[in-house]
Every structure is written in C-alpha cells, then in structure tokens.
Design a protein around this nucleic acid. Structure first.
Lengths: 210, 210
DNA sequence: CGCGTCATTGAATTCAATCAACTGCCGTGG
DNA sequence: CCACGGCAGTTGATTGAATTCAATGACGCG
C-alpha cells in the first residue's frame, strides 16, 4: 500500500542523492529537544542516541541508531527528544524543503511512514523488554539484539554502561553485575568492556526469553 | 502534509458511514494474536484492551482503547496482539475492502497514519512510565492519565487491578497498596474499587512527576 | 607518572514480589 | 431471606532482587 522497500536502496534514495554529509564528534548534539524538525538524517557511520531529559534528572533513552538508519523525522513539527553522537559519526542530512524541491513529496511521505513504523516497532520491543523482565533477562535481550543486528558473533558496544542502564531501566551497577554473571556462566565473553562475543547463542536466547 | 483532522469527524468518516455495528460481551475476543488484520474498528462504547500472550504466561498489555478510538490497523498484515472487550462494547467495524470499494483509499491511508502515530505516542508515554519510575509514580501517572483523558474529576476505571498491574509492570498487590497509600494521603478517593475522584490534582501531578 | 573517567565489586538497604490470610461483594440456591 | 461459595480486592509477613552507598580496579590521556 505504502511502498517501503525501494527508498532504502541507495540509488533511489533522495537523502543519499541530495543529502549533505556532516560529521559529529563523540558527545556532540545533533539536535536538541524541542527544536524544529527541518532536517532528515541518515546514518553513514557511528552511532546516535536519542534521549529526553526529565525534570528529576532521569533520562529515558528513546533509541539507538546505527549505519543505514534514518532518523530525525517527527510526527509533530519539533523534536520530542534530543539526538547525540555516541561516537564520531558521519551523517547525511537533507532538509525537507530540499527533498520537496527535488520532487520528492512521495519519497518524503514514504520516509516518514517507514521511520514511524520502525520507531513504533522499536518502542514495542522496548516495552516488552521493560515490562515484567528481570535484570538478567533485560541485559541478555539487549546483547542478543545487538548480536542479531550484526549477524556476527563478535560485537562492538557503541554505548557505555550508563546508556545501557538508561535504556534497560537499570543502574550501571546492576548492568555490570549481570554482564559479569553472563560471562562467568560462559554465555558471552567480554574481550573488553566495549566488545563481546556470543559463546552460547542458545543459552543467551533462553535467558532473553523473548 | 498528511491530513489527520478531518477523518475523525463523524460525517466524513468512512468507518462511521460504512461500518457495521458489532457488540461484544465482556471478556469476548475481538481478534486474536496472529490473525489477519482485515477489519478496522472504531469504539462506540465500552473499553478494549490489546495484549500479547508470552510463552511464560506473562501478558504485556499494549493499550487500552476508549470510545472514539480507532484500532485494529496493523503495519504488517496480521495482528501482533489480541484485542478483548474489557466491558460490554459496541464497535463499528469496516473491512479494508469495503473502505477501498467506497473509494476511500486516501482515507484508509490517513486512518493508518493516524492510528500508527497514536500508537507510537502512546507507546512512548508507556515507556517513560516504565523506565525508572517507582510503583507509586506509575500508579499516580496512570490515574492522572485517565483523569485528564476524561476531564472530569470522577473517573470510572474500565479495567480491574490485574489489567492495571500488567500495564504498569507491577503486581496487583502492589497496585492495591499504592492506591491505598494515595487514598490515605488524601490525593484521590475511591468511591468503589472501580471508581475514583481526584481530590488534589497538584499533589497527584507531583507524584506522577512526568 | 598521576589524574580523571568508566567499570567492577562488595556490603547494606530498600522496594516490590511473593506467599498467605482475610474482607467485602455479588449471585445462586437452599 | 439468609447461607454459601466464588471472585476481586485488600492487608500482612516475609523474601528476594535491584538500588544505593562505598571502595577498588582498569584504562586512556595529558
């Protein structure tokens, strides 16, 4: 009904054609909470996190975006969350006007649709992670999710423990403990604190129980 | 860009024009998890809950739908969650084919868009409720949300404690305790276990801290 | 090398879950 | 009409998981 495959192929993709590459340093802000959402972004390299700051200092994380992902589109006119670079990033940016000027009205609609559907699915998955799951299940699910996104057994963690903890609704200490636990039971192996390898996928899937 | 207001006005609304009223008794299933999503529904009266059954018996609740709400549209072809009537319901149902046959291609797109956006917003709100919020904050947020949806101070709870608990990621006992607590601190007053009144909105907002 | 940041580990505490009993409310049927 | 049973909600006691507080360890960088 609403086409969604074609636009992600590089050639047809308007963002790729008219987008301007921008680089962001680690911890740099791409856009702030409440700013007008004029630009559309596609990740080339690096990782981005969206988050919302709350009055009491708690920081619910919306999502992580990896190479290939499109983000920055909002259903309202302004950004409900801020976006920051977790690592040095290269990102293509295209303004809505430029897309429209290039005759990409349909493409923009499709882009919005795809981004919204993706966000919804991601939010749903995130929800099932948070409702009635124990700390170890959450961490296992998270690691498993990363591993299947890559396909490889060795995975680089783009984010630090604090970001994981925020995303999982836990504290860094608990995350750390669960990781240690997963490691000592031989399910995963952390080569460094930012890089791990799945040793027993079956066991990890059982622990994730999703 | 994508129109969203008009379609909810009764006259223009295709669901209202061509939809067939159906009644469901309390606890009746409207559609099951995994079924094909052929019909679009609009609530007339009553309340519906969507939920997903998991292998281990845990039941994450997707959402509650109240009169006026449209539901049943999925981004994929089949229902990712089941829908059940929380109370006796009257619901208008229209098939996708009928909508298309009535020349409502655009309307259907708009309907999908609106439903998806609404679900996304709802999921985001639900997420902030579950991440790093204490039991009392969750219950307070929930009650406050219901109260503002209605506008009135006296609110009927459509769901029992178990459904609240599932939605909030708590147990019924904890929900009950928090309600008792809110009541004894004079913030809300439960006239019966399914009906409450906000006594101190300020205090409730503070407790909800959202 | 020493400092700062981030991650891990340990001990104590807190909060919500669990287990278990009890209450109130309805509907049914004696 | 009241007794009974069943269900939903409340309350209490205890357990257990995750947080908090505090200290230590590992790593990168000037």
């Amino acid at each position: 009904m609403i086409c969604s495959e074609t636009i992600l192929r590089e050639d047809h993709d308007l963002i790729s054609r008219i987008g301007v590459p921008m680089t962001f340093a680690k911890d740099e802000e791409i856009y702030g909470q409440g700013e007008r959402a004029d630009l559309v972004y596609r990740m080339i390299s690096g990782t981005v996190r969206t988050s919302r700051f709350m009055a009491d200092g708690r920081r619910p994380i919306g999502d992580f975006y990896y190479p290939g992902d499109v983000f920055g589109l909002e259903t309202t006119g302004s950004h409900s969350m801020a976006a920051e670079a977790l690592s040095d990033c290269v990102i293509l940016a295209a303004s809505r006007q430029a897309i429209l000027a290039a005759g990409g009205e349909e493409e923009l609609k499709d882009l919005m649709w795809d981004a919204t559907v993706r966000d919804l699915e991601s939010a749903r998955e995130h929800l099932t992670l948070l409702v009635r799951k124990s700390a170890s299940e959450r961490v296992a699910s998270f690691l498993l999710g990363l591993a299947q996104r890559r396909g490889e057994t060795a995975v680089e963690l783009a984010m630090g423990r604090q970001d994981m903890a925020d995303y999982l609704g836990l504290t860094i200490e608990t995350v750390s403990r669960m990781i240690t636990q997963l490691q000592s039971s031989g399910v995963v192996e952390f080569e460094s604190c930012r890089r791990f390898r799945v040793r027993d996928r079956e066991a990890l899937e059982d622990l994730a129980a999703a």
